[in-house]
Amino acid sequence: MALEHADVQRAAHLARLGLTDDEAARYVDDLGRILEMVDMLQALDTEGVAPLAHPLDVTQRLRADEVTESDQRSRFQRCAPAVENGLYLVPRVVE
């Protein structure tokens, strides 16, 4: 499956990665070759093979419904780029 410039731009937008045109052009090339390598998978017949999401056949353990965490806001917000009145600040979101 050939990769187009638009595919890279679309992926970059979905992933919120700013790319210059030069970078995008380079990634079209890189990603194209990676996908070419990946396309080798298509040669393999996997009809009827169940996808494997986890290497072990184990199931989800459930946690008891208990409050175990206490307020650590000031500690957690020490590494935040912009906070005010305990809120994380971002450029105005328009709805």
Binding site: M1, L14, L41, T46, L52
Partner: peptide, 21 residues
Amino acid sequence: THTLSEGFFDAYYKKAQQVRR
């Protein structure tokens, strides 16, 4: 992002998980 996006998921991600098995 590309391989998970609409229209590519089955050909890439699902296929890769089958191969993983």
